[in-house]
Deep mutational scan, measured.
Amino acid sequence: MFYPNSPQTSPQLTQIPYGQQYAMMQRQIQQPYHPFATTEPQARLYPYHYQGPIQQEQGGFITQQSTAASPQYVQMRVTPVDQSIMSGYPNQTANGSSSSSFNYNIHPQQQQQQQQQQQQLRHHAMPVGSVPLQDDRYRKQLIVNYLAPDVTSTDLHELFSRFGELDGARIIYDKQTNMSKGYGFVYFCHAEDAKEAVERMSGYEFHGKWLKVGYSTNPLNIVPSNSSPYVHAGSRGAAG
C-alpha cells in the first residue's frame, strides 16, 4: 500500500523548493479562506456584503464582478436614472436638479381664491374633541361614552347635575331594538360647569363602566337656548 506522503511516492527534499517541504498533501497545500485577509477597505468593513468592485458596462447597466450573493443577503441591482424623465418638472436647472418651490404660472386672482378656499376649509374642519370658538353652545354640550346598558337618562342627569344647572341629558337608544347604544349627551347651562365635568368625570366608574367624557361637536345635538329642557323620564321611549 502506498500513501500520498510515503517515501516511495514523495520526491527528495532537495528537489522541493524551500517553504513547501512540509506541504505535501493536497489539504495542506490548499490555503484556508480568510474573509478579512484583503487589501480593499470595503471588504474589511463589510465582509458579507462586499463582492468586489463595481464596473460600468456598455448599455448603462451596473453589474458586479463577483458571483451571486448568499441567500441570506439580498443584493440590489441599481440602474442609472434617465434624465429625460425629470425634464417635465418646473424650475429645473441645466444640471438636472430642481428647486423646492414650484411655479405653475397661476393667475394671481386664482391663487388668492385657492388660498381663501383653504382658509375656509381649515375654519370649518374641526378635529374630534375640539371646541370651536365662534359658538358658545359647543362648550356646553358633552358626550358621555361607555355607558352601561342599564343607565337611563334620569341617572345621567343626576350624575352630572352636581356640577351645575343642566339644560338636559339623554341616552341614545336603538330604534329597532330599543336598547341603549352605550353613549349619551349632557347639556349644561354654563360653559364653566361643562369644563369642570369634563375634567372630573373622564375615567369615572359608573355602573361598572369607566366613562369617557368630552365635548360634543355635532351641531345636530345642540340644544337651542330658547327651547324647553328635555324630559328626564326613566322610560326608554321618552328618553330616546
Rank of each mutant, 00 (worst) to 15 (best):
A194N: 02
S10T: 04
E158K: 06
V151I: 02
N218K: 01
S225D: 05
R200M: 07
L121P: 06
P219F: 01
K195R: 10
N226V: 08
N5I: 15
Q120Y: 13
F163R: 05
P229R: 13
Q31E: 11
Q111E: 07
T177K: 08
L159T: 04
Y33P: 09
Y230F: 13
N226P: 06
A69E: 06
K212Y: 00
Q42A: 09
S130L: 01
S87W: 15
I16D: 02
Q117W: 15
L211I: 12
E57S: 10
N218G: 00
I172R: 00
T63S: 08
S10N: 07
T14E: 14
W210L: 05
V81Y: 11
S228G: 11
E205V: 06
V74Q: 10
S101A: 10
D155L: 07
A94E: 05
Q51F: 15
V213T: 02
Q119K: 03
Q83P: 09
D135P: 05
T63K: 01
L220G: 02
P53T: 11
Q15N: 03
Q110W: 14
V151C: 04
Y3C: 05
K212C: 01
Q92E: 12
L13F: 12
R44A: 10
S84W: 15
H123W: 14
N221A: 05
Y204A: 03
L13D: 05
S225Y: 07
T177S: 06
I16V: 08
H34A: 09
Q56L: 13
P149L: 02
P108C: 07
R27A: 12
M86G: 04
K212R: 11
N221V: 06
K195Q: 11
M86E: 01
A233D: 02
M201V: 04
Q72G: 11
Q109W: 15
A169D: 02
P90K: 12
Q141F: 00
A148Q: 04
F188I: 02
Q114T: 06
K175Y: 15
S235R: 09
A197W: 08
Y33S: 09
Y104T: 08
P108F: 06
Q42P: 04
R44G: 09
E192T: 11
Y48V: 11
S101Y: 15
N178A: 11
T93H: 08
V78A: 10
G129K: 05
S70L: 14
V213N: 00
P108S: 06
I222S: 02
H124P: 12
G129W: 12
E199S: 11
G59W: 15
R27T: 11
Q21L: 09
L220E: 00
P7H: 13
A69H: 08
Y215W: 01
Y146P: 00
S225R: 15
E192N: 03
F61R: 03
M86Y: 04
R139F: 12
A37R: 10
D82P: 08
G237N: 04
